[in-house]
Amino acid sequence: MPAVFSVTSEQLGIWMVAFLWPFVRMLALISTAPIFSEAAVPRTAKVGLAALLAIAIAPTLGALPAVPLVSAGGFWILIQQVLIGAAMGFSMRLVFAMVQAAGEYAGLQMGLSFASFFDPTSGGTTMVLARLLNALAMLLFLAFDGHLMLIMTLAESFHALPIADAPLAAGGWFLLVTAGSQIFSGGLMLALPLIATLLTINLAMGILNRVSPQFSIFSVGFPVTLLAGMFLLQLLMQYLAPFLAPRFAAGFPFMLEFLQGLRR
């Protein structure tokens, strides 16, 4: 007689829980993390990648909470995994937001505030210079194997913060909020040489306009600031990778520190 393979409803529920809860956390991170969340990446690819990672990581999770999937406790665990994955992806996006802020600051000083277009990633209008720096940051992220380290950190997150029905502590959320200040400080630090130089040029042209009233600052000022900004931007490009490399490297331990804060 051939062997009969039978699956009980209890076993099926255990298998669904072991797959669904990690899958939700991974899909939330992939939907918010840099590179993976880009609009150019098809949704089917995002879902497929999350499902593949969930299948690979599920056997290493150990014991899961004995909570039925279709219950208030199971729904609460699903919500927790969505929040955890989205917050992890957002924490990594802080570095890219820093680069975009630097592009916004520099674009305003160069007179490129009108050079903007709709960005499907952010859902709003973004300056061309900010979009250019963001694209360069993504290329550097790939060159530093950041996408692989992000997947590795995602796998480690299930050991740093296992799936449980316990409430999340507020320390991790406070840590994430305070880290948002790096967007403004880091963006200003990256664009500070360009901003200071252009501000000096504008100050010099203002003094020249007062000394020589026939000097038309409106017809000369814009080309001068634009050319000077392009020249300075070219000089700053060689420092972009050394500036972003330690911040990319610090982003992954911060994600684990954030998860540890949720356990306290």
Rank of each mutant, 00 (worst) to 15 (best):
L175Y: 12
L175E: 12
L203E: 14
M149K: 13
G251A: 15
A245K: 14
A63Y: 00
P167W: 05
A155N: 12
G48K: 01
I30E: 00
G206A: 13
P42V: 02
F117A: 15
S6M: 05
A106Q: 09
Q182A: 07
L20S: 11
Q260E: 12
M189V: 13
V41H: 00
V82W: 10
M152A: 15
Y105W: 09
P22A: 04
A130L: 06
Q182M: 07
P162A: 07
L136E: 08
I57M: 04
T125A: 12
A39G: 01
G73K: 08
M16A: 14
L168H: 03
L203K: 10
V24Y: 07
A160L: 13
L190W: 05
I30Q: 00
F218D: 11
F117W: 02
G221V: 01
V177L: 15
A170V: 11
T44P: 00
A58R: 04
Q81Y: 08
G48D: 03
P246E: 09
L12T: 12
G171Q: 13
T200L: 15
A249R: 12
P2Y: 09
I55Y: 04
A45V: 09
L27V: 00
N134T: 06
I57S: 05
S113H: 12
V4L: 14
G62M: 04
D119R: 00
A18S: 10
A54Y: 00
T8Y: 01
G13I: 03
G261I: 09
Q109H: 12
A97K: 05
V67R: 04
A137I: 12
L133F: 09
L78K: 06
L29P: 01
V7S: 00
F252E: 07
L203D: 11
P68Q: 06
M98L: 14
S181G: 10
R25V: 04
T153S: 13
L190E: 02
R43T: 02
S71V: 06
L129S: 08
G111L: 06
M1V: 07
A54I: 03
P167T: 03
V17G: 08
F141C: 01
L83A: 14
I79A: 15
A179T: 08
P223A: 07
A63Q: 13
K46Q: 04
E156H: 14
I77G: 06
V7L: 13
G261Y: 13
L69F: 13
P246K: 08
Q11H: 10
L232D: 01
L49Y: 02
A56V: 08
A102N: 05
A101D: 08
L49K: 00
T225Q: 09
L142I: 15
V70S: 04
A50R: 02
D165G: 13
G171K: 10
F252A: 08
T178H: 06
V82N: 05
A250P: 13
G180F: 14
A143D: 03
F184N: 03
P162C: 09
T60F: 11
P59C: 09
S212P: 03
A245S: 10
A97T: 06
Q11F: 06
I55F: 04
P65G: 08
A164D: 14
L244E: 03
S216H: 15
Q81K: 07
S122K: 07
S37E: 00
W15H: 04
D119N: 12
A170L: 12
A135Y: 05
R247V: 11
V17Y: 01
A241R: 03
A97G: 13
L262T: 14
L168Q: 05
I30S: 00
V24K: 04
R43L: 02
L203G: 14
M255R: 06
M1Y: 10
P120S: 07
